[in-house]
Design a protein around this nucleic acid. Structure first.
Length: 105
DNA sequence: TGCGTGACCCAGG
DNA sequence: ACCTGGGCCACGC
């Protein structure tokens, strides 16, 4: 599962974000969002754009003010992803169906 | 072995 | 648009 998840995360285009659940689905493990989170937490992978993965709500998963929260926010801003009321606009989210047509796979 | 704990999600209400 | 209950499952104590 680890490898498939890493693949999916690596495939998220810069400037766009994806929910943990969506990552799980695309990796072939629907329903296992928690495992995706753990995998990212444990991953030693370099150049893994883990900051492009957030809650389906558009919120960063860490509590505001924590080091990881700040780090993720910083990386997102660096690629032009802005947050409104603590969350990214849904338009930035790679969702199912409709997006499948636009971005494929 | 058992149980609480998460970088979570979703259908309902 | 927020809250809730149930689902999910690897880990650690």
């Amino acid at each position: 599962m680890q490898a498939r998840v890493v693949e999916v995360v690596r495939a998220i285009p810069a400037g766009r974000v994806m929910g943990y659940g969506e990552v799980a689905r695309r990796a072939g493990f629907a329903g296992r969002a928690r495992q995706v989170a753990r995998i990212l937490a444990d991953s030693e992978e370099v150049d893994l754009p883990w900051h492009r993965v957030l809650r389906s709500s558009g919120h960063i998963a860490f509590p505001p003010g924590t080091p990881l929260f700040d780090e993720q926010l910083r990386r997102l801003r660096a690629e032009g992803v802005m947050l409104r009321d603590g969350r990214v606009q849904s338009a930035r989210m790679v969702r199912a169906t409709l997006d499948e047509m636009l971005w494929g796979a």
